[in-house]
Design a protein around this nucleic acid. Sequence first.
DNA 1: CTGCCCTTGATTTTCGAAAATACTAGCTCT
DNA 2: AGAGCTAGTATTTTCGAAAATCAAGGGCAG
Lengths: 233, 233
Amino acid sequence: MNVTAFKRRKEFGKTLASDIAHRMRSEIVSCGLKPGEVLKFDALRLSYGASFTTLREALTNLVAEGLVVAEEQRGFKVAPVSIADLIDLTRARILIDVDLIRRSIENGGDDWEIAVISSIHRLGIIEGRAVEDYADNPEWKVAHREFHESLVGACGSPTLLGIRQSLFERAERYRNISARLRPRPRDKVGEHRALMKAAIGRDADRACELIARHIQTTTDNVVKYASELFSDS
Amino acid sequence: MNVTAFKRRKEFGKTLASDIAHRMRSEIVSCGLKPGEVLKFDALRLSYGASFTTLREALTNLVAEGLVVAEEQRGFKVAPVSIADLIDLTRARILIDVDLIRRSIENGGDDWEIAVISSIHRLGIIEGRAVEDYADNPEWKVAHREFHESLVGACGSPTLLGIRQSLFERAERYRNISARLRPRPRDKVGEHRALMKAAIGRDADRACELIARHIQTTTDNVVKYASELFSDS
DNA sequence: CTGCCCTTGATTTTCGAAAATACTAGCTCT
DNA sequence: AGAGCTAGTATTTTCGAAAATCAAGGGCAG
């Protein structure tokens, strides 16, 4: 007889802790959990229905990703946002993305080209469906992330890919903050297409310049439209 | 009356978990815990005298640093070593260190110069005391780490500094592996001094070239003398 | 004899209570 | 009145047992 009838539902990952980490990550990135907010275990226990220990493990993982900060013996809080942090983050992301795209262009074979083309194609379909504010669409966010991941997918550096992913997620929170205030979304379609063309055309210098500007422009927009929300104004 | 009489001894950090993480980190880096070794909780409980939960938290932290790998539902093991990993790591370290040294040279003020000079001076004193195999000396390792940290200390990027520290630690394990096999330690005194001079003299291009070569040379030596120890030989 | 399923044992993961620590407020002494 | 101490409360951290999951060995059908 099957004993898994009462098994807890685990949507992402095999363990409850990784599932909760996933949910909290979404909440933090979408600012459902506000920057700087203190995370008390009793409250979290109610929200997520897990015990101290399990929550603690989930939080520890998020600390490693920079979405939560821990002060020993004084609990956890959602990582605050600030212009200084955004600028720091942006510079780190440009440094790493530029290097990884260059390496991908050097190493990438047929599979890589196919992945890049298919991911930008998917992005185009989603953008075509809802021309207005596609950037708020969660589906677009996934496709957007996957396009950028495909560009660096052939770099051959697991270490930097892991770091890149974590920085991308931290940046996503800033993108979400600015999306609420920005008058209308910037049109990124052209930028993405140019990036794809430079990558497939093996024009490394141009691709690097484009990705650097792409990341920097997004940050500049965030600063422009959301700076009053930040603690260091 | 003071109630701390029975307080557990915590050498590093305030919590037991961070203390244990610190001890395990040392053990892994020094290969007292061998690469690839599976870490069973029952065994760890005996070695470190802590409970499941506390050990789990310590391990989770080490996973984030890349010194331990976790397979969900299948436990933890010490991160394996391989030439591929070492090469990947080296390339990442060069990318980041080069950038951070350049920025430090741009931003660094008097305090930075003083920190660089004082840390290389301390390194020189230790090297002078035991001319032979100073690289095995734990005191030298600390001074060596602090010298390299001082070089990038004025970069102004907390994010990349944190990443840099974690990569440095991962690399230290490879340095330790090769130290046991290497006929005699390479003479790094001159390299460090040249680095210091280029940094203080604000010659960014030269400092970047020197640091890149410094890191690359160390890796080349590890590969040369220890490659047969690695799984991917 | 071979392959599949189920039981059994080992190991990890989760839980909530108990201990340790930090914070708050009220009191005393100067 | 103000500073420093003390007791009480809130919160985090740690523990070991209990539940869930995985891995291996034995029995049964084909």
